[in-house]
């Protein structure tokens, strides 16, 4: 039981970077832009957060600058794809490759440096509830913020006028343009939001989850977040479920690795591969499921908008 609580607690923390980056990409894709650069934006967020936090001794400033770095990266992407109308797949890849290199370059002197991570914030009364309190209400403040953001994004997309416009832009940009909405402006804002969230997700990794910087430390989380959006069929609630599932897999594999029992004969590399294997399996399952039902992918996803 104790182990179960520990795993559930860790699952929630592990799901946060995926949830944050996934929410950002969800809004971005809802507006019709496919940004494959999450990995690069996350890495830039992660390294910026760490460097700023170490130098300024302020975690808050670290988070702020990470969000700024993520936004700046996404601004490059927005400029390329929305102003210069470049291919979104190629530009997103460029952003990821660039982010991997630049973050390694910036963070070189900071590899292995120690940092006091963000402390947990126990919500009074609620955290004292047995079991639920320990699993849900004894986290750091970013966890609560992430769940707040989750509800905010859900509300924004499905219960606000602007959210409707964003979705309409993703479904049919010509129609949205005819209606008098500025497709480019809406998409730029959506892309910038994606960058913000990816930056925050990266900062969570280096300031809270494992308060360290090492090259390429996102370990494919940005790509998994992309897969999660597909898995979620572009719906926020299913994104949360997916993020929790992946958090669970990545935590369980850690526990399995340290297991001394009958599983010790299994190579640890197999466990490390589990999140990636799960991603593939999940993608297959969801593709089969979506083939039967109507496709929920935004119709104009990835298409260049040419005003006539």
């Amino acid at each position: 039981m104790e182990l179960f609580i520990v795993i559930l607690y860790a699952t929630i923390q592990a799901c946060i970077p995926l949830l944050l980056a996934g929410l950002g990409e969800l809004v971005c894709e809802k507006s019709g832009v496919l940004n494959l650069g999450i990995e690069g934006m996350m890495l830039m967020g992660a390294v910026t957060a760490f460097v700023v936090a170490v130098e300024s001794d302020s975690l808050f400033l670290g988070f702020v600058m990470a969000i700024f770095a993520g936004t700046l990266m996404s601004a490059c992407f927005a400029f390329l794809t929305l102003v210069l109308r470049a291919n979104q797949v190629a530009s997103g890849l460029a952003l990821s490759i660039f982010g991997v290199g630049l973050s390694a370059f910036i963070g070189l002197e900071y590899v292995g440096k120690p940092l006091q991570g963000l402390e947990n914030f126990f919500i009074s009364y609620l955290s004292e509830i047995p079991l639920i309190g320990r699993v849900l209400f004894q986290h750091d403040i970013i966890v609560y913020l992430s769940f707040g953001l989750f509800f905010a994004v859900h509300r924004f997309l499905y219960h606000s006028r602007l959210g409707l416009v964003v979705r309409a832009t993703g479904e049919n940009h010509d129609a949205a343009h005819m209606m008098g909405y500025s497709v480019i402006k809406i998409r730029v804002l959506a892309v910038l939001f994606g960058g913000m969230m990816a930056g925050l997700a990266g900062a969570y990794l280096t300031l809270v989850y494992t308060p360290l910087w090492s090259e390429n430390m996102t370990a494919g989380r940005g790509w998994i977040a992309l897969a999660l959006v597909v898995f979620a069929a572009w719906r926020p609630f299913r994104l949360l479920v997916g993020a929790l599932l992946f958090g669970f897999v990545s935590i369980t594999q850690l526990f399995l690795q340290s297991n001394q029992g009958f599983l010790s004969a299994v190579p640890t590399e197999l466990f490390t591969s589990l999140p990636y294997l799960t991603t593939i399996v999940v993608l297959v399952v969801i593709s089969v499921a979506q083939r039967r039902k109507n496709l929920s992918v935004p119709s104009n996803l990835g298409q260049v908008f040419e005003p006539r």
Binding site: A86, L102, F105
Partner: peptide, 18 residues
């Protein structure tokens, strides 16, 4: 640092797409 090579390489693709 060697990683500046990757930065240059990423930049090339950016500039090309632009």
């Amino acid at each position: 640092p060697v990683s500046i090579g990757n930065v240059f390489q990423g930049l090339v693709l950016f500039c090309l797409l632009a």
